[in-house]
């Protein structure tokens, strides 16, 4: 048993390494692109919006949102690349014949998405610090619960991306899935306002939004940095994120196996 696990781990690690060879050449450019976009968002939310009457802490709120948002937005090119592969050159099929269970091939893919996205999330943290400076303390992120939640969040996004990839029938429909599914979940998922603000506006919508997994990602991150007064409890966010990750992993892998007709 231990021998088999060791063998699988070896293959898994080698696949991740091979995956990163291509990405290493792109990572600096991707980080620069991401930093520019983040800096503009955070600058607007932190300095321009308050001059229009918004709370001064909105910059910090946006910065925290972007730790999650960047991972979600920047994983999309990899999802597109994956869809192009399963509908075109099918390099994935070589991986599906390796001596590991098929579900592990897709798990590796999700982890690959997660590790790539986390590089950009980390970049966004440093950009937030540079733009907001005194209003954003990096010390709030130096905690075990941040590390655990950050890993869970990235894994959730990795597995959620598998479902999105399985839903996209061909490259021409990739925008449709993004606009019709991901974007509404993101906007209503406490990314622009806290869940409690939505509850005071419309309790029914707010309770319905508890079915939206992004709510727990955003609220969990907000509770770590901004405190729990305006957010859902951290333990609830962490628990739901873990549960949603497991559900996404199961659904995503099943859908992809069915789509590629793999045993």
């Amino acid at each position: 048993m231990m021998h088999t696990i060791k063998q699988y781990a070896h293959v898994f690690w080698s696949m991740l390494r091979a995956d990163w060879i291509g990405y290493k050449k792109m990572i600096i450019g991707a980080c620069i692109d991401s930093a520019i976009v983040n800096a503009l968002f955070i600058f607007s939310a932190g300095y321009i919006f308050p001059s229009m009457g918004m709370q001064s802490s909105y910059g910090l709120f946006t910065a925290v949102t972007l730790i999650v948002g960047v991972a979600l937005f920047d994983v999309w090119p990899f999802v597109a690349e994956f869809v192009a592969d399963i509908t075109g050159s099918k390099t994935i099929l070589n991986l599906c014949t390796l001596p590991i269970p098929t579900w592990l091939v897709f798990t590796e893919r999700a982890c690959s998405f997660a590790t790539k996205a986390s590089c950009l999330s980390i970049t966004s943290i440093f950009v937030s610090k540079l733009v907001l400076w005194n209003t954003f303390s990096l010390m709030t992120l130096v905690s075990l619960r941040f590390v655990i939640f950050f890993i869970c969040m990235q894994l959730f996004i990795g597995f959620f991306s598998l479902i999105m990839a399985a839903l996209v029938k061909d490259m021409s429909r990739i925008g449709m899935v993004w606009v019709r599914i991901v974007f509404p979940l993101y906007i209503l998922g406490a990314s622009q306002f806290p869940w409690l603000a939505l509850k005071s506006f419309s309790p029914y919508v707010a309770y319905a939004m508890l079915l939206n997994p992004f709510v727990y990602l955003m609220e969990g991150m907000h509770s770590i940095v901004l405190g729990t007064d305006t957010s859902l409890p951290f333990s609830l966010c962490l628990g739901m994120t873990i549960l949603n990750t497991i559900v996404c992993a199961y659904v995503g892998i099943t859908m992809l196996k069915k789509r590629l007709d793999l045993p």
Binding site: Q7, H10, V11, S14, M15, R17, A18, I21, G22, Y23, D85, S89, K90, T91, I92, L93, N94, L95, T97, L98, P99
Partner: peptide, 30 residues
């Protein structure tokens, strides 16, 4: 572990060189 497969579509990604393709395939097989 006992089979080798050459599918109809060659399925070779362009992120690796020829040498890397073979090297990583070796690692995949332990």
């Amino acid at each position: 572990r006992h089979i080798g497969i050459c599918p109809q579509t060659t399925g070779l990604g362009d992120s690796l060189t020829i040498e890397q393709h073979l090297f990583y395939q070796g690692l995949y097989y332990g």
